[in-house]
Each structure stands twice: as C-alpha cells, then as structure tokens.
Design a protein around this nucleic acid. Structure first.
Lengths: 132, 132
DNA sequence: ATCGAATGTTTACAACTGTAAACACATGGG
DNA sequence: CCCATGTGTTTACAGTTGTAAACATTCGAT
C-alpha cells in the first residue's frame, strides 16, 4: 500500500502551496515565490524541498543538473487528510458551527454555493428518512 | 491585548479535548482518560498539562496541593483558529469541495443541517445581489 | 507521628522544525 | 578552456514535540 500521508509542518505547507500552483516547477521558481511571499532565504527553501521529497509529498524528476518538482498527490487529497485532523479535534456539537464559520470565511463562488446547497438538501433528506 | 493563541501540537490537542469535556478537572481525571484513550503514561500527561499551561491554553487554579485545570477559552474559539489555518492551506477552488467533504464526514444533526442550509441560502442570496 | 499514595517539578533524550550558511559540482558564456 | 552562477548536498544549531523516568513534596490513613 502506497497511500501513507506523512504530515507536514507549517513551513512545509507553504512550500507545497507554491508547488501546487506552479506545478511542475524548478527549484528556482519555488525559491522566487517563497522569497516574495515569506522572505525566506534560498537555502531555507532548498531544505524544505528536500524534506518534502523525503516525506514523499513531492516527486522530483531529474532534468539535466536540476530537478522538476511536482506534488505527489492532488491538493484536495491532502486537504481532506488535514480536514480529518481538524474534525478529530471537534467535540460533540461543534461541527455545525465550525462549518458555518468556514463557509463564511471561505468566499465561495456562486457555483460552489449551489453545489453545497444541493448537498445539504440531500443530507437533510437522508436524515429525515432515518429519523422517521 | 490578551488574545494570543499559541498553536498546539497533536498530542496537546488530545489533552485539550479531554479537558474540554471534563472541565473543570483534576490531573487525575485527565490522566485516567488519556490512559484509556491513548495509552499514555501518567508522566506523559503531566508533561503535556504543564506545557499547555505554559502556552496559556489551560488555566490551572491551585486547590490544596493540586490544581484544577480548565480551558483558557471555549473550544469553538480554538477550533476557529485551527479552521483559519486549514483555510490558509487551500488554493483557488478547493474550499467548496473541502466543505463538501467535511459536511459529509461530520455527522451533522438535523438541526445543524437546517442551520447550515439556511445560511447557504442567505449566502447565495447575497451573492446574487452582488453579481447582478 | 509515620508512611504510602497522589501530585507536581526536574531531568532526559531522540526526532522533527525553522532557518540558514557552507560546500561541491556542473554548465553555459566568454 | 575557465569561471561565475545556478543547483543540489552537507552541516549547523536552537527550539518544539513525543514520551517518560526520577525526584520532591504533601495529604490522608493508621
């Protein structure tokens, strides 16, 4: 089985975000973005890239003397894993408010809102069925 | 300003969850719960309690020779902070699917579903207004 | 008054993180 | 052909985390 998902630190997430956006990309691109976004030194970014490859969150394919980096899996898959962790932290009765909060902060598009509304209708329907 | 929210590690969250449930409580209670839930040695729990007090996530008030522990702030406040972090990790277009996922895993009550649906209606309405 | 149990305090120690300099190697421009 | 520059590799080092034993202190039972 190859689905192990080694957890990432805060700094590592920031690098991953950059790679998900630019993928596939060279170290240079990540270094430039990280410099502008976080003010990190090039060495710092190199270290983080290496660690992410070690953790198998990034795939690096050699191209000449350098590498091309790309995420080992889609951003959603990784976000879902992180969401699981957040859900693990909830206690009875907090999931509703939590989702309310996130939906508000989340700046959803009209389409996304429509999808979500449809899903809630469906969930409510299922719930009723169960209840009665 | 007193609202600094020092971030917690995974193990610390687990202890906090216990304290939020049992609050206010003595070390003994937390140690018992953590032993049964995580199999941790009493020393481990003592260390984590101390660190959480240092980080001011827990308030400890002396009672005789021991302490009464209670969370420094409500669970929702802390969850919202964690949600902010998760949202920071999202990239364009992932928030919708992320919320879909969480809503499905979240085992929402009928009441929570109703509240959420109402909020989505409202958000959609606001969105339409803006669009046109 | 005394001792064992409970509770908190100190110490431990390896792994992981944040942050980066130093070093080695290749490669393209001159 | 040689060197500056761009890449990756090695080394660094303090702080945090996971995990816990050892030690000190105190309170309740005898």
């Amino acid at each position: 089985m190859a689905g192990e998902q080694e957890p990432m630190s805060a700094a590592e997430w920031k690098v991953m975000r950059i790679v998900w956006e630019l993928q596939p990309c060279a170290a240079r691109d990540v270094i430039a973005a990280a410099e502008s976004q976080q003010g990190w030194a090039p060495s710092t970014v190199k270290t983080l890239l290496r660690r992410l490859v070690d953790k198998r969150q990034l795939k690096a394919t050699r191209v000449g003397n350098s590498f091309l980096y790309r995420p080992a899996r889609p951003v959603l898959k990784t976000l879902f894993r992180a969401a699981d962790t957040l859900l693990d932290h909830t206690v009875e009765g907090t999931v509703g408010p939590l989702l309310m909060y996130m939906a508000q902060r989340g700046r959803l598009s009209t389409d996304e809102l429509a999808d979500l509304r449809a899903m809630f209708d469906e969930l409510a329907r299922q719930n009723e069925e169960q209840d009665s």
